[in-house]
C-alpha cells in the first residue's frame, strides 16, 4: 500500500521572502521554467525547504509577480517556507553557491506586505530605433499626446462567450516618468500597473508605439526597477 509522505511529521514553517536578480542570458527563462529552475537551485543548495504534504510532496514556492520574458530585473520576489530557522545571510550564501549565470539572490527577509498589495511596477527601457533619436522622440511625444491609446486585447473564452479581441485604452495606465534621448536611442522610465487587478507590460506599450509611429525598434533593453504597492510603497 502506498502511504502519503510527511504525514506524521509536524513541521513548523519559517516564511522567507527572497529578492533575486534575473539578468543577461537568464532573462530568457520563461516564468514556468523559472519555477523549476528555482526548485532545483534550492535542492542543490540543500536548504531545509518545506514540502507540501500528501502523495506527491512538492516544494512550496510562490512568485508574487511574474517578470515578462526578456526583461532584466534585480528586484524580483520569491516566497519560500523553511523547516529550520536559518539566518538570512546563511540562507543567501547557501542559495547563491550554485546558480546559473544571471540568476542570483540579493536579499532574504521576512515577508512584510501581502501579495495582493502589489499594484504597479517601474521600468527602465532603452530602445534603438531605426530612425534618428530626435525624430523618434518627437514621435513618442505625439504618441503620448493622443486622446486614447487603443490596443487589441485577446479575451479568453468564458461561459457563453467565444474568445475574441476587444479594444482597450491603455493611455490612462501609462505613467511616463522620463523620456529622453540617450546614445543614439531613447531612454524611458515608466510606471505601469502590475499585480492581480491589471497588468501592463512595457512590451505592449512599445508595440503600440511602433504601430502608431511606424518606427522600428531594432534593439530593446528593458529592466524592472521597482515593484510597488497600491499605497506607493515598495513591495517588501
Amino acid at each position: 500500500m502506498l502511504t502519503p509522505k510527511n504525514q506524521s511529521l509536524i513541521i513548523e514553517r519559517w516564511e522567507r521572502r527572497l529578492t533575486f536578480a534575473k539578468e543577461g542570458r537568464a532573462r530568457y527563462i520563461s516564468h514556468l521554467d523559472l519555477m523549476r529552475t528555482m526548485q532545483r537551485a534550492i535542492k542543490r543548495a540543500r536548504v531545509p525547504i518545506w514540502y507540501t504534504q500528501g502523495f506527491n510532496p512538492h516544494m512550496y514556492l510562490m512568485f508574487p509577480l511574474a517578470l515578462p520574458l526578456g526583461t532584466d530585473s534585480r528586484t524580483e520576489s520569491m516566497d519560500i517556507s523553511l523547516t529550520e530557522d536559518i539566518p538570512f545571510d546563511t540562507l543567501l550564501k547557501m542559495l547563491n553557491s550554485s546558480m546559473p549565470e544571471g540568476l542570483y539572490f540579493v536579499k532574504a527577509a521576512l515577508p512584510v506586505r501581502k501579495h495582493t498589495d502589489i499594484a504597479a511596477a517601474e521600468y527602465e527601457v532603452e530602445i534603438a530605433p531605426d530612425v534618428p533619436a530626435a525624430e523618434a522622440l518627437a514621435k513618442w511625444q505625439e504618441f503620448m499626446a493622443q486622446e486614447e491609446i487603443n490596443i487589441e486585447k485577446r479575451t479568453k473564452a468564458k461561459k457563453g462567450k467565444k474568445p475574441g479581441v476587444k479594444q482597450v485604452d491603455i493611455k490612462p495606465h501609462i505613467d511616463v516618468l522620463c523620456a529622453e534621448e540617450r546614445e543614439n536611442g531613447l531612454f524611458f522610465r515608466m510606471r505601469l500597473p502590475a499585480g492581480v487587478e491589471l497588468n501592463l507590460n512595457t512590451g505592449t506599450v512599445m508595440d503600440a508605439f511602433e504601430s502608431f509611429s511606424g518606427v522600428n525598434i531594432v534593439d530593446n533593453y528593458t529592466k524592472r526597477t521597482k515593484i510597488l504597492c497600491f499605497d506607493g510603497e515598495e513591495f517588501i
Binding site: 543577461g24 542570458r25 537568464a26 530568457y28 527563462i29 520563461s30 521554467d33 529552475t37 532545483r40 537551485a41 542543490r44 520574458l69 526578456g70 550554485s98 546558480m99 546559473p100 549565470e101 544571471g102 512590451g203 531594432v218 534593439d219
Partner: peptide
C-alpha cells in the same frame, strides 16, 4: 549575441538558443 537576442522574443522556447544553463562550461 546581439543578433540572437533580437530574435529570441519572437521564437518558441527561446531559452534553448541562448545557453547559460547551470552546469554549462564557460
Amino acid at each position: 549575441q546581439q543578433k540572437i537576442e533580437r530574435l529570441l522574443l519572437k521564437t518558441q522556447k527561446p531559452a534553448r538558443y541562448i545557453g547559460g544553463e547551470l552546469g554549462s562550461v564557460v
